[in-house]
Design a protein around this nucleic acid. Structure first.
Length: 233
DNA sequence: GCGACAG
DNA sequence: ATCTTGTCGC
C-alpha cells in the first residue's frame, strides 16, 4: 500500500493556510446552477483518521445520479497534513481526498462533501476548496450547525430554514427525514443553493444523511482498518 | 480573557 | 473525527 505524502510547500501554520484559502477563494464560482437532479454521476467523499499513527484514509464513491447505484469506488491512505483547526479543515483532508478522486476512472460529476462550503468563517469551507481544486461542482452537507445560527425547519421532509452567518444566509438547515434533526447544506462550487438542497434530498430517500456520504463513510473506515492491519503485520 | 467550534 | 454497551423502536 502506498502512503500519500503531504505535498511540498503544503501550509504548515494557520497564517499560511488562511492566505492560501483567500487565494483559492478568488477562483470560486457561485453563479452557476449546476447539474440537475438525476443528471450524470454524484460522488461522495469522506475521510477517517488514526491520529496515533498520523494516518488519514479517504474514500470516493461514485453513484449514478438517477438510480443511486454504486458506479465505482476508490480509496487512498495518506499522512495527516494539518492539525484540526475549525475553519481550516480542508488542509487536513485535501491531499488524500484528491488522491482517491484521482484513482477514479468514472467521471465524478457532482461532489458531495462532509462539511461546509460557503457556510464558513471566510466563505470557503472544504466543499468549496475541493470544488475549486478539481473544477467540479460541489456541495457541502454537514451534520452540525458549527457556529452558525439557523431557523428551525418544519417537521416534514423537505422543509428548511436559513443557515445564517454574520446576518448573511450561507446555507440551509434541511430536513431530510420527518421529525429528525436536519442536515446543514451549503453551496460548494458551481452550484446554486436550491439545487444543492434538491440534490441532498434526492440523495437521502431513506436516511438522514445522503447515500453518497453513507457509502463514503463506510468505505474510508474500511480502508483505514485495512491500512492499519496491513501496516502492523 | 474564556469558551465554542465542520471533521 | 474518535473513545464505547446496551437499549428502545421501526
Amino acid at each position: 500500500m502506498t502512503i500519500i505524502e503531504v505535498p511540498d510547500g503544503w501550509p504548515a501554520d494557520e497564517e499560511t493556510a488562511q492566505a492560501v484559502q483567500e487565494e483559492l477563494r478568488a477562483r470560486l464560482v457561485v453563479a452557476e446552477e449546476g447539474p440537475g437532479v438525476g443528471e450524470g454521476n454524484v460522488t461522495g467523499v469522506d475521510v477517517a483518521y488514526d491520529d496515533a499513527r498520523d494516518l488519514v484514509a479517504a474514500a470516493a464513491v461514485v453513484l449514478d445520479g438517477r438510480t443511486l447505484e454504486v458506479v465505482e469506488e476508490a480509496t487512498a491512505v495518506g499522512r495527516v497534513s494539518f492539525p484540526y483547526v475549525p475553519g481550516l479543515l480542508a488542509f487536513r483532508e485535501v491531499p488524500t481526498v484528491l488522491a482517491a478522486l484521482g484513482r477514479l476512472a468514472a467521471r465524478p460529476g457532482l461532489l458531495v462533501c462532509d462539511g461546509y462550503g460557503l457556510a464558513h468563517p471566510r466563505r470557503f469551507g472544504l466543499a468549496s476548496h475541493l470544488g475549486v481544486l478539481t473544477g467540479l461542482p460541489s456541495v457541502g452537507v454537514a451534520k452540525n450547525p458549527f457556529t452558525f445560527t439557523y431557523a428551525q425547519p418544519g417537521e416534514a421532509r423537505g422543509e428548511f430554514g436559513d443557515l445564517v452567518a454574520d446576518g448573511e444566509t450561507v446555507g440551509r438547515a434541511l430536513r431530510t427525514r420527518a421529525g429528525v434533526k436536519p442536515v446543514f447544506v451549503s453551496v460548494g462550487h458551481r452550484v446554486s443553493l436550491d439545487r444543492a438542497c434538491a440534490h441532498t434530498l434526492h440523495l437521502s430517500p431513506r436516511y438522514r444523511l445522503p447515500e453518497t456520504t453513507r457509502h463514503a463513510d463506510a468505505l474510508c473506515r474500511r480502508a483505514l482498518g485495512e491500512a492499519l492491519s496491513t501496516n502492523t503485520e
